[in-house]
Design a protein around this nucleic acid. Structure first.
Length: 467
RNA sequence: GGCGAGUUGGCGGAGUGGUUACGCAGCGGAUUGCAAAUCCGUGUACAGGAGUUCGAUUCUCCUACUCGCCUCCA
């Protein structure tokens, strides 16, 4: 069996991955808060952990891997967005707006991530469907002396958990010295974080032992991972920016609620997406969405390829130059595998991924397969990596009418060229070629003959108009 | 202020205690009516300093710089 090695940020080193139960490998990844289109930064963990999911399925068998990624559909950002919609004239009740907003955002998210070639996880729980489990977990934490109720809130007592700060390598006192934590009168310690907080009458809320309210941000992941994967599981993933405080708080909650279980064995964190060397973030306003890029005409596979060309633990700069290069490579690969039946997935690619998801090395192997002309292997491997190109690569083949049409033109062009070589007059050849290029076709002329192919921009109507 | 990550050839970007990354661009050539595409050839880089070592880009320490987290953000 392939030995997988992963960098465990909990221990800050690469470790051999050994699942708790090889017949049920379990992974939890923090998903999006659903109030807006996913931006490119949201997409990176999706692609990174999709590659890991595919690798795990390959090694342990597709039916032996459970992958959970949540939707955070209760959150103050969502409430704020809904209120601003009310302010803009939306007359529906706040909760109706929120339901519509979160539903729509989840649909967008699915569409955009599907376009990036990401497989759907085994479970995609919505936080609001797990309130009962969250309340139960909070009650347990209070009973064990790790949390306390105060003024309608329930707070986690960080001083009750000596390991607090271990994941991110921080000491509580150092963080307080940073003096940027919210100090609320009802907190015993400034670092204590909210498990439950009161809601106003029109805000989303649920009855609880502490009154009408809603959960804090962190408890949902602890409750959902426990419910769907059990008290201990193999991999917990997410963006590096979630390491603190979110993951630190998850560990504190889960380990205190289920002492001895261990929670997640491996913690994996992907680095951020940058734009021009700066972090991409909503507060800086330099972000763009996956949908923006798709609408600009970049195929999802190109975005995915660019993502995979940088190792997940390094910051990735998005540039159009990279996208152009990626598109060129994929175009070459796809043209080689046209009409090819996929064979075996390349072993060197699996080995590269097994070494802490060295996707860049995997791409280097794709170039090797391409230069070797190993079409069947390349096809299978591209498919495995989620870079199969969908219908685009096969458009000319899929559409017989287009193929027949272009065959006519290629015959005509070949005849004209034959004549031109004799007469030394290429004006007609150049005119035909120009016309085909303008209509989005690709023209290849070699000694052997003329070949006309449809690119994804090919437009038969345009060709007719130019005739 | 605390914590962490990084600094590789023109560019992107892996990796390694001593031997070619890979890709893009460039250059030279083949081929071509011209192009495109393709093919062949071509690049000896690892922030600076000190140390360990027979030998360091790779290990250790220091310095500089960049970036991130500590506050909503993936």
């Amino acid at each position: 069996m392939t030995e997988i090695r992963l960098y465990n940020s909990r221990l800050r080193k690469k470790e051999i991955f050994a699942p708790i139960e090889p017949e049920n490998v379990r992974m939890y990844v923090c998903g999006p808060t659903v109030y807006d289109r996913a931006h490119l930064g949201n997409a990176r963990p999706v692609v990174v952990f999709d590659v890991l999911y595919r690798l795990l399925r390959h090694v342990y068998g597709a039916e032996h891997v459970t992958y959970v990624r949540n939707f955070t559909d209760v959150d103050d950002k969502i409430n704020a967005r809904a209120r601003s919609m009310q302010g803009a004239g939306d007359t529906r009740p706040l909760n109706a707006i929120i339901r519509a907003l979160t539903d729509a955002t989840i649909d967008w998210y699915h569409g955009d991530m599907d376009a990036l070639g990401a497989l759907r996880p085994s479970h995609e729980p919505r936080a609001t469907e797990f309130i009962v489990q969250m309340v139960a977990m909070i009650e347990g934490l209070i009973a064990r002396g790790h949390a306390y109720a105060a003024e309608g809130h329930v707070l986690f007592d960080v001083r009750s958990y000596p390991e607090y700060g271990a994941l991110s390598g921080r000491a509580i006192d150092d963080m307080i010295a940073g003096a940027r934590v919210e100090v609320a009168p009802y907190k015993r310690d400034p670092m204590d974080f909210v498990l439950w907080k009161p809601s106003s009458a029109d805000e989303p809320g649920w009855d609880s032992p502490w009154g009408w309210g809603r959960p804090g941000w962190h408890i949902e992941c602890s409750a959902m991972s426990h419910d769907l994967l059990g008290p201990s599981f193999d991999i917990h993933g997410g963006g590096i920016d979630l390491q603190f405080p979110h993951h630190e708080n998850e560990i504190a909650q889960s380990c205190c609620a289920h002492p001895g279980a261990g929670f997640a064995n491996f913690w994996l964190h992907n680095e951020r997406v940058q734009v021009d060397g700066k972090k991409m973030s909503k507060s800086l306003g330099n972000f763009f969405t996956v949908r923006d890029l798709l609408d600009q005409g970049w195929p999802g596979e190109v975005i995915r390829f660019v993502m995979l060309s940088t190792h997940y633990r390094k910051p990735m700069d998005w540039t159009e130059e990279k996208a152009r290069v990626a598109e060129k490579h994929l175009g070459s690969f796809w043209s080689l595998i046209r009409d090819t039946k996929p064979g075996q997935v390349d072993a060197a690619v699996i080995a590269a991924l097994a070494d802490d998801l060295n996707t860049h090395q995997a791409i280097a192997e794709l170039h090797r397969l391409y230069s070797e002309g190993a079409a069947a292997c390349l096809a299978a491997t591209l498919n495995f990596l989620g870079l199969q190109g969908g219908d685009r690569a096969h458009r000319a083949d899929a559409d017989g009418a287009i193929r027949d049409l272009l065959a006519q033109y290629s015959d005509g062009l070949a005849k004209a060229r034959e004549l031109a070589i004799k007469n030394k007059d290429f004006t007609e050849v150049d005119r035909l070629k120009r016309m085909l290029l303008d209509a989005g076709a690709e023209v290849r002329m070699t000694k052997e003959g003329v070949e006309v192919l449809a690119t994804q921009d090919f437009d038969p109507a345009k060709l007719e108009a130019l005739k």
